[in-house]
Each structure stands twice: as C-alpha cells, then as structure tokens.
Design a protein around this nucleic acid. Structure first.
Lengths: 208, 208
DNA sequence: TTTTTTGTACCCCAATTCGGGGGATCAGCA
DNA sequence: TGCTGATCCCCCGAATTGGGGTACAAAAAA
C-alpha cells in the first residue's frame, strides 16, 4: 500500500522537485501539491494523507498555523516541516504546533526519503542543526544553587502548586507559623519578596 | 589528528566491544575505559578528551550525575549517553544535564561511529525513539482556551513576573482598583483563588 | 565539646490580597 | 434601541501574606 502525500510549498521549482523525487519511487503517491496552505485542513480531511510536506514560510498563512489547524482533528498524519530557516523561533513554534519532523531545505535531496520513512516509523527526524537547537533549548544554563534544605524544597513545591500557607500547613502536618518561618527563609535565599515572585522564579529557573 | 575518547560502561562485554569497535578505525584513540564514573571529572581534566561515551546506569554514580560534574568546567567535550532505557525520566535528566547525544544500546553497532562524527560536527544525534520523545515533550497538549482579553493577558503577564498589584498599576498607568478588577476577572476565568495558583497555572500550561 | 545548622513553633504589626458589592464609559451588534 | 463586552474606577471588610523578632531541641560540624 503506497504512502499518500500532500505538499505545500510556495517555491514552484522546489514544489515540482519534491513531486519528481517522490514519483521516482513506487512507494509514494502525491495526492496534491499547492503553493499555499489556506485550505490545507480541508484537503487533509478530504484526502486523509499519511504524510504532509509543509513549508514554513508561505504567503497567506504560515505552515505552522496550518499544522495547528490540522492537529486539532488529526494527530496521526506525519507532518514534515521544510524550511530554510534554522532560527529558534520558527523551529520551536512549528514543533510546538505539532510537527513530526524538521528538514532544512539544503538537506532535502539526500534526506527527504529517509526522513519520511523515519516519520512513518514513529520517529522525529531532524536535520542535525535543528536537533542541536532542540537539545540546547532543554539544557539548564547552570542552574544557580540556592542551598535549599529538603524541607524548604518541599514547602516551596507546595507553594508553587498554588497552595496557601494554611493548606501547606495541613498537608505537611506542621503549624501555620512554622510554614511562615520556612517561607521567610525561602524568600531570603531566593532574594524575593512575594509568593508570586518566588513561584515565577522557581518555575522559570526549574529549581525543584 | 585522532579523536580522543573516554569510555564509562559497567557492562564489561559492551565496554570491550566499544573499545574494539573504535580501535578498528585509525581516527579514534581510546584514552581509557572504566566500569564506573566516580572519577570521571578528574579523568576529563587530566586527559581532556574530545568525546565521552557514558552509560546512564552504573553502580556508585549515575552517568547523568557525572555529566553534570563535567559540564561545570567543560562545555566542549561531546558526551554521548548510552542506555537501554528509553523512558522519559532518564533521558530528559541526561539531556538537561548537558549530554550532547543519546544512543540506545541496541543501535550501538551500526550507529556509534556516525553518531560520534555528528557530535563532533556540532550536532545532537539521537536514536529515533529518543528524538520522538524529545519532540513530543515540547508539543502543547491542546492548550485550553480561557478567553482572556488583550488587557487581561497583559496584566496576567505582569503578575507572573512577580509584580504586586501596585507595581502593575504603575507600569500600566491604571488605577490600583482597576488592576484588582482585572485580576478578579482573571481568577474567575482561570478558576483559581490566589496569585500563586494563577501564576503556577499560567506558566505550567503556557497560557501566554 | 562547643558551635552551627536544621527543623519546629510562636508573637506582633503592617501591608497586601481577596471577594463581595457597586458604577462609569464606549463600541459594536441585533 | 437596548444589550453585551471590554475597559476603567471605587468602597468595605475579612483573610492572607510579609518582615521583624524569639525560642528550643536535635543533628551535624568544627
């Protein structure tokens, strides 16, 4: 059973090239190729493809926006983003929107087919530069050490879940005033002066 | 100039296997291979390798902990994690600690050398299953829509940075009571009853 | 053994936040 | 034209939080 593919790419030469490349192999059927993704969601409902090749930057509607729409009703189809950009924002937006893989256009000729196969195998193929960005974004920038004790961490954790002092006291079987003591120490160490600051700093710097 | 490599792997057979594999090629020199990573930081300082192969699960000290130590003083060396696990926690901990790549042991024989080369090229090679996990972890699980107005989002944003009502009032040129008004509406929409809850929910669900 | 740290708990006072009420425009829409 | 939604402002009272202390026992460190 051949793999059914839709293509959205505004550069005509590249669009044709992609079609040609896929048609060389018996395994693929190109169900359509358009220069914008305005009706992509409709196309997907109608054609129900296995794979979509989606340019990121197209006139009228970005590929990322189209991916968001498609993902609202279809989690299955493998969506490979094609782009010349390797800047953070575009890539992360697309990944968050639900793209399955990410291919830089300069790598298309030799990687397109393997990437499509890897997506169909449930993988998430990325050009090396993209993989590097993704991994880097997850790495902690040498998280400052605030020297919390175990108990302090526990209480800060509860605070960050939105608990009031009272609720924390109940859950830890400690006195209300004890909780206040701990929180005062925590604020001192964190150099903050309110619960919102503490919560925001804790979550954003992944302190727990 | 050959690539200098250190190995930490508690399974003796695999450790030998890795050495053999690398020694087949003139490009690599194995500077040492140990069954635990207790003195890994010292080894790295002393030998200054280009690449480290690091098992995740070893007796005495986990590979992830060793990576953290090494990264404190060396951001350059490429560290490839080796593991049988493909469960979330181990993988993410290692990535966050500063691993450069992630190879499942079942893929070692055919991928070790290409992965090492990709790391040296500044990439972040991952076994397909790992790449999939990493990408999945970044995707938004269809963020609930709380129907905030533009103004409400602005104020919620300021609240999440740790600002007090007063500070928000100053920064927006609005009256203190106006801010209170907005925040009451925001709490209503978010179904929360305190700033900490609101901040925690907003950040964790990436609402802004 | 003395000192320091950690964990626990309490007091007072002032500032801030929260929940309940109002109300006033103004724009767009039915 | 009346209605709804968004934006703006105010009062009251109660609850919660923030900052300054003190106290003491147990554990850890010196």
């Amino acid at each position: 059973m051949p793999t059914r593919i839709l293509i959205y790419e505004d550069n005509e030469a590249l669009r044709r090239g992609l079609e040609e490349l896929l048609l060389l192999s018996e395994e693929f059927i190109v169900g359509g190729a358009w220069e914008n993704c305005l009706h992509a969601a409709g196309d997907v409902r109608e054609y129900n493809p296995d794979v979509i090749l989606m340019d990121i930057d197209m006139p009228g509607m970005t590929g990322t926006a189209a991916v968001k729409e498609i993902r609202r009703f279809n989690k299955e189809v493998a969506i490979l983003m094609l782009t010349v950009f390797d800047d953070n924002k575009h890539v992360f937006d697309a990944i968050r929107a639900g793209a399955s893989g990410y291919l830089l256009k300069k790598n298309v000729s030799d990687r397109l087919i393997p990437f499509i196969k890897e997506m169909l195998d449930g993988g998430a193929p990325m050009s090396p530069a993209i993989a590097k960005m993704v991994v880097s974004s997850m790495q902690q920038p040498a998280t400052a050490d605030y020297n919390f004790t175990v108990k302090e961490k526990e209480i800060l954790g509860l605070l960050c879940k939105g608990n009031s002092y009272k609720m924390i006291a109940t859950q830890t079987n400690l006195a209300f005033e004890t909780i206040r003591s701990y929180i005062k120490n925590i604020y001192e160490k964190l150099q903050v002066h309110s619960a919102t600051e503490a919560v925001s700093k804790t979550i954003n710097e992944r302190l727990l």
